[in-house]
């Protein structure tokens, strides 16, 4: 059963790098990335898909590319 997820990543981010990473990961997991906003301090993703794959997206982006340090992750609006 597909769900909607809103995930916020805050920390020290490199916007272009994080964007490329997130898009690549969403495609790898066949998730629909409905919305994506990012700046140097936070990123917000709105996704649609099966819950276990949404979790996998969260796991990968919580680590993220080398030049992004994610300090906190929040699920929910």
């Amino acid at each position: 059963m597909d769900e909607r997820a809103v995930i916020r990543f805050t920390g020290r981010l490199a916007p272009a790098s994080f964007t490329s990473f997130a898009r690549h990961r969403a495609a790898r997991l066949s998730l629909r990335l409905d919305a994506w906003q990012v700046d140097k301090h936070q990123a917000r993703a709105v996704l649609h898909g099966p819950p276990d794959l949404l979790d996998a997206f969260e796991m990968a982006c919580a680590l993220g590319p080398l030049d992004c340090i994610v300090l906190h992750v929040m699920r929910g609006e």
């Binding site: 495609a27 790898r28 997991l29 066949s30 099966p50 276990d52 794959l53």
Partner: peptide, 14 residues
């Protein structure tokens, strides 16, 4: 199949 997550249906992109 991903045994740690029995409910997970893997996608063909994996």
């Amino acid at each position: 199949a991903i045994p740690a997550h029995p409910e997970l249906t893997p996608t063909s992109t994996i």
